[in-house]
Design a binder for these strands. Structure first.
Lengths: 205, 205
DNA sequence: GTCTATAAAAGGATAGAC
DNA sequence: GTCTATCCTTTTATAGAC
């Protein structure tokens, strides 16, 4: 009953939740929502099956929580590059490099991006719900204006900026999928993808 | 008992199998293997649940069969462009255009490509089995030499050709996923992706 | 060949001991 | 807080009537 221990317990509880979420992220990324079993997540987290339900109400809840985190994380990363004063093309480059590095090293920052993209395409209900609870503008939408500015400055090829952003990130998604599945052992040079932005008749420099 | 009717029955049987496979392809593409239910496929095919098992032994068998077909189809498409006498860069372009057109129009030729790529990344057992039963060299491997030739001719940027091929097709995979899921209403211009091959300081022409 | 009804298995969720 | 054992829903697969 002493307040100290209660606070400590709250800390333990929070740690466990994070531990479960981290394990679930890995499992969901590798198997997808439907194929991921609660028992897989429990094993990956190194705890018993039943304990999962002490911290989360359902598989859906875990997934929705992760998608929210993924969107937040992606959004923060995007806001960060938007805020700094580099050139538009370098903002896109920096974003790509961060994701490539994260995916290459199996870090959750990289996994978050993959999860967010999969949530967009999967049609899984809890994903849709989590995506829409953030009714604020979608993360990738924040990049359209960056691309537009880059086009005005002649750094980025002409064309519908939304289409360009989607093409760029779906390409990253495809690469990340191959990497995560082990089909590809390491991520390629991110400059290959940067060529998507490259105006036809002009050097990058 | 008359031979004529038996042959006609064989034809009906074959038609039904194709009908089920076509329905299954659509369902698998939209929901993924694990989330796809046999009842979904039956409904999509417009037949009863039980009848599925008259033509196939299991969900795994249907999936494996589709993956085999997808690999064959992709391989034939690749062999076809390899055989014709156009420039290497135009061979890649023609391949991309075909896939883009197929995915854009929801044709099975486009779906086959998506299925094949997903089979590579999914880790689903029947997919792996179907992929390995074709122990012959993998479809995308056939393109490495095309890219190499394009590099010698200065049409394609330098760099590991395998990496380039994988990057190119994983980008297509990502785009196709967005299209199939409805996140993207139409496929972008395939020339955007062709820039992946573009040497840095040179016009395509 | 085709369907409906049922069995069998898998996986999500809960209960209760410790 | 943590685990084991059990329940219950969902889905795969089979049986048997027509």
């Amino acid at each position: 009953m002493c307040p100290r221990s209660e606070q400590a317990n709250a800390q333990v509880k929070d740690d466990r939740q994070k531990q479960i979420l981290a394990a679930a992220l890995r499992v969901f990324i590798h198997k997808g929502f439907a194929a991921a079993k609660m028992s897989d997540i429990a094993t990956e987290a190194g705890i018993s099956y039943g304990l999962m339900y002490h911290y989360f109400q359902s598989k859906d809840e875990i997934y929705a929580e992760l998608v929210r985190d993924a969107v937040d994380s992606s959004k923060r990363a995007i806001e960060r590059v938007r805020a700094d004063d580099s050139e538009p093309i370098d903002k896109m480059r920096s974003l790509a490099q961060n994701i490539f590095k994260g995916v290459g090293k199996n870090q959750s920052a990289g996994y978050y991006f993959v999860l967010m993209m999969e949530a967009m395409t999967s049609g899984v209900y809890p994903a849709r719900a989590a995506l829409h609870s953030h009714n604020q503008e979608r993360p990738l939408g924040l990049l359209v204006s960056v691309v537009e500015e880059g086009q005005h400055k002649g750094q980025i090829a002409a064309g519908d900026p939304t289409e360009l952003v989607l093409t760029f990130f779906s390409a990253i998604l495809g690469l990340a999928s191959l990497k995560v599945s082990g089909t590809m052992t390491s991520m390629p040079d991110s400059e290959i993808l940067m060529r998507i932005f490259q105006p036809a008749s002009q050097k990058t420099t």
